[in-house]
Design a protein around this nucleic acid. Sequence first.
DNA 1: AAAAACTGTGCAAACGTTCCCAAAAACGTA
DNA 2: TACGTTTTTGGGAACGTTTGCACAGTTTTT
Lengths: 336, 336
Amino acid sequence: MRFETSTIKDIAKALGLSTSTVSRALRDRYEISEETKKLVLAYAEKVNYRANPIARSLKERRSYSIGIIVSEIANNFFSQVINGIESIAYDKDYHVIISQSHESYKQEKLNVEHLASRSIDGLLIALSSETQDIDYLRSLYAKGLPIVFFDRVPKDFETHKVIANNFKGSFDATEHLILSGKRTIAHLTNSENLSITKERLEGYKAALVKYHIEFRPELVKYCQHGGMHSAELEQAVKELLPLQPDGIFISSDRLTTGCIMALKKTNPEVAHKIAIAGFTNSNLVELFSPSLTSVKQPAFEMGQVATELLISMIEAKRPVTEFETKVLDTELVKKR
Amino acid sequence: MRFETSTIKDIAKALGLSTSTVSRALRDRYEISEETKKLVLAYAEKVNYRANPIARSLKERRSYSIGIIVSEIANNFFSQVINGIESIAYDKDYHVIISQSHESYKQEKLNVEHLASRSIDGLLIALSSETQDIDYLRSLYAKGLPIVFFDRVPKDFETHKVIANNFKGSFDATEHLILSGKRTIAHLTNSENLSITKERLEGYKAALVKYHIEFRPELVKYCQHGGMHSAELEQAVKELLPLQPDGIFISSDRLTTGCIMALKKTNPEVAHKIAIAGFTNSNLVELFSPSLTSVKQPAFEMGQVATELLISMIEAKRPVTEFETKVLDTELVKKR
DNA sequence: AAAAACTGTGCAAACGTTCCCAAAAACGTA
DNA sequence: TACGTTTTTGGGAACGTTTGCACAGTTTTT
């Protein structure tokens, strides 16, 4: 069961030229006469010649493909990021290979190493909520694999990063809850490891400070698995409710939907009494009941920016030493 | 910016062996003595040798990767299918490359041809709602590319297919609406091109027949773009409402959520009066308001089965001539 | 004791490209 | 006419594997 296509050799033989001439003609090199180019191009067209990317990759020692690691594609935020990535990558003739960590460190590492061995030219990654040790990434990076982080970024890793303005997003959401009269605002958030967790917590705190509301640590609940396990979420909700919050600010897509689900399941009667604001890029929020205020991240754009940075690293002639961290603004969509 | 790794040559040189011996030792061939194998394996481990999959692909003329085409990954059904695909593929050491058609024929064709030129070993595809002409697939298939269709399958294409029991799923959903007292049941569905559209329409009709309800063609609305354009959906809803349906059965994930959205937007007052049943694999249905009865497809399993079939085709020594169409049961989740 | 069979290894070609280097062809110029 | 330049082409190695074949050394068979 094989797949026969014409090669440069075939064209060369048919036209009585050498493979080198054909190769150059196809790549439109200046050394080849217009006449020959036309000839070759026409024939290539006729036999529907497609360059073999595998052979090209082997020769050029690059694969024209970039790897992506996200926790889950079944997550609106990430699927939007991926769309952004693809929009740029395909334009620049790169292929993307998507892998899911499912919020597991082990899986993440495995996938990254798998991708690296498939000779990707660069990596775009949002860390899993479990990830603490990124030495394996450092070592790949040191060996020359360009890496750009997005959304969930590590500290102390000198490379390009693209993140949302998490502080401001959280601040705005929390402020919104306060301005609508809430005073006991809980905060349900991701694993403490994550950069986004810290930044969003800071935004939440800052809003409290601005309105002279005391910060109560017991109102903050961390979910190690980022809401992948419903038991974890239900437990958090169960611990939160006795404190009688009148508002709750939630710091990630999966947690937001999961939390509402847990609320409805365990305490349907209070679910509608608590004001909810949360990070989510779901395009279905309008259907949710109870309805909520959402913080939308510029996911598509984030993917685009990250990809542009990555490709610039890949195609840089000399090692890149100046790195930037792009911060993109979030959007607050108030509960209708 | 390059990535240096050790090769078989390096190992051979270091150990004073030939590359062929090393290659054979690594692949655990019988001809090589235990002693040499141990030596090679140990050294390979030590230098962290990773076979270059590109070189391997070139030599073996296969890439150990399979292509997937879905309309959108930001769709619970498809992302679950993809998870099923990955679960099998990774087990059998295949890589997957995901592409999105966004329900566009042009995009679908482009992506497939791109994948084919990247020498995928096989293709898993759910057709876009626009697709009518599948000659480009026939031609690739004829050239030897194994293809397995899932969910949206063509007629007259002799290969493996995996689908849900669309007839029964629709029948059950429609019957459920009837049994809860509805008599004027509209049907909002996808492009007429799609296999699922026809099958689901049949199930809907059969339920009507069983309960002696007249089939009224004007109650059926087709959406060419599968709900990708909200205008299309709103138009359909607008045309449907004057007929005063008391129930509506919707035939796809995207349409289901889109329809509820359109209903709420254009006629919020009636949105809650119409009973809704629809195909959807969203794990957020419990949050929706109005709530609905959903038909869930065995998405994960569908991905698994399709992948097993595809890999069996890829690895078949002789051309496969016996094809099967696997039909998997759906699950009706009644509105709570 | 010679022939046959088996074991373990190496040589070299091949997969389809790209690209360095050299050679040939075309053209000017003295 | 001869020679230098420029333009166009070809030869062949290389990228990292896999594998058919040959060969040397050992063991078994006749």
